[in-house]
Amino acid sequence: MDMDQAVAELAEKARVIRRHIIAMLGEAGSGHPGGSLSAADIVTALYFREMRLDPSRPDWPERDRFVLSKGHAAPVLYAALAERGYFPVEELGTLRKLGSRLQGHPDMKKLPGVEMSTGSLGQGLAVANGMALAARLDGRDYRVYALLGDGELQEGQVWEAAMAAAHYALENLVAIVDYNGLQIDGPVSEVMAPEPVPDKWRAFGWHVLEIDGHDMRQILAAFAEARHTRGQPTAIIARTVKGKGVSFMENEVDWHGVAPKGEQIAQALEELA
């Protein structure tokens, strides 16, 4: 398949996933649209192109792993898993409901395809390190991807893990920062400025790539470069727009953790048609 066609198909898949996110959250009546939508293109690229997966065998030892460290973006993960065939798409409608496998934050014991239970921010990269070390111990060549929020970078454990990943030269590890500039209390730069983010990762010993996190070509190119990077882990700093794809949610801090209702759902789905 040539690149243009691949990119077009992935963009189309990302659109479908964004629609699922809106529909799921609307149905659930609560949850996190902003950070789910900002990560949709990255997660789509991972699940529909980059990662080695077999949805019929979620326990396949050779599979690549994805850790959604920013666990509140569970809807984007669930939508990707459903579209990829891990469970029926209809089940997305059970998000956050009693008895559902689709918990408010991902639960690896409940839902096949979820590699790690997350929700308490700051913890996923350390877990990804452990997975990457296990691959090395077992002589397996699977790769590990962790998606972090930019606000999440304020957690000290992220930097403990960043130091360790470089120390152990985990070249099979990729950290992706969903750099949407917003957290709950406001712009990340106002709450607790993380800049210069790329320099920080570089200083911690990582190979650093800066991309537009909504440009599918740049996303794929970054993953390809990471795959060929030797001797150090790769950090992809992906500039994104929180709420991407829904005009009234874009760059709006208040759309971090509220679900759309009624007319809002209709308008969002129309924009994503």
């Binding site: 792993r65 690896m108 590699e115 790690m116 913890q123 996923g124 990269l125 350390a126 877990v127 990804a128 390190n129 452990g130 997975m131 990457a132 070390l133 296990a134 111990l137 454990q157 893990a161 360790a164």
Partner: peptide
């Protein structure tokens, strides 16, 4: 956290 990843 690293131990958790190894255990998975």
């Amino acid at each position: 956290g690293t131990a958790a990843g190894l255990a998975t």
